[in-house]
């Protein structure tokens, strides 16, 4: 499965970069987050409550910024699991300034397991797009 997309944020690139590295902003913008804390710089632990089609549940996991090229790109390693299954993914994010705005593009190939894969797989890329949309909309509001 492939997840990819891009969103335009009405703010300069440096500002968007700042927002993307602020744990409080991330916690406010990520859909379904019930808890999120930065364990150390670039390493976050989070608890999310999500529903993907017939699969609902609580996921716990962590996200680590494994490669960071301020202010243009970062690579994230995400691992999460819960009763409905697990997700492991490496995601790539790029930021390009276009005038006063910034185009944030992301792509990754998550590996999913458990009921999430068995029952939710067909729905997952649609849900991922929707959740990403919510995230970037909120990020736009923060900017």
């Amino acid at each position: 499965m492939k997840v990819e997309g891009s969103h335009t944020i009405p703010a300069p690139r440096e500002r968007v970069w700042e927002l993307l590295n602020d744990p409080d902003v991330l916690a406010r913008c990520t859909p379904g987050v019930s808890k999120m804390e930065a364990e150390r710089e670039g390493f976050y632990r989070a608890t999310l409550q999500l529903s993907i089609g017939p699969v609902k549940g609580r996921f716990e996991g962590h996200m680590e910024v494994t490669d960071s090229r301020e202010p243009e790109a970062m690579t994230l390693t995400i691992e999460g699991s819960g009763a409905p299954g697990g997700v492991r993914a490496v995601g790539h994010i790029t930021l390009e300034q276009e005038g006063e705005q910034t185009v944030v593009s992301y792509h990754g190939q998550p590996q999913i397991s458990g009921r999430l894969a068995a029952v939710g797989a067909r729905l997952l890329s649609g849900v991922a797009k929707k959740l990403a949309g919510q995230f970037f909309n909120r990020l736009s509001e923060e900017s």
């Binding site: 590996q111 999913i112 397991s113 458990g114 009921r115 894969a117 068995a118 029952v119 797989a121 067909r122």
Partner: peptide, 13 residues
């Protein structure tokens, strides 16, 4: 799928 997840694990699929 390549990671050994059964993608057809319901009567929907």
């Amino acid at each position: 799928d390549d990671s050994g997840q059964l993608l057809t694990a319901s009567m929907m699929d």
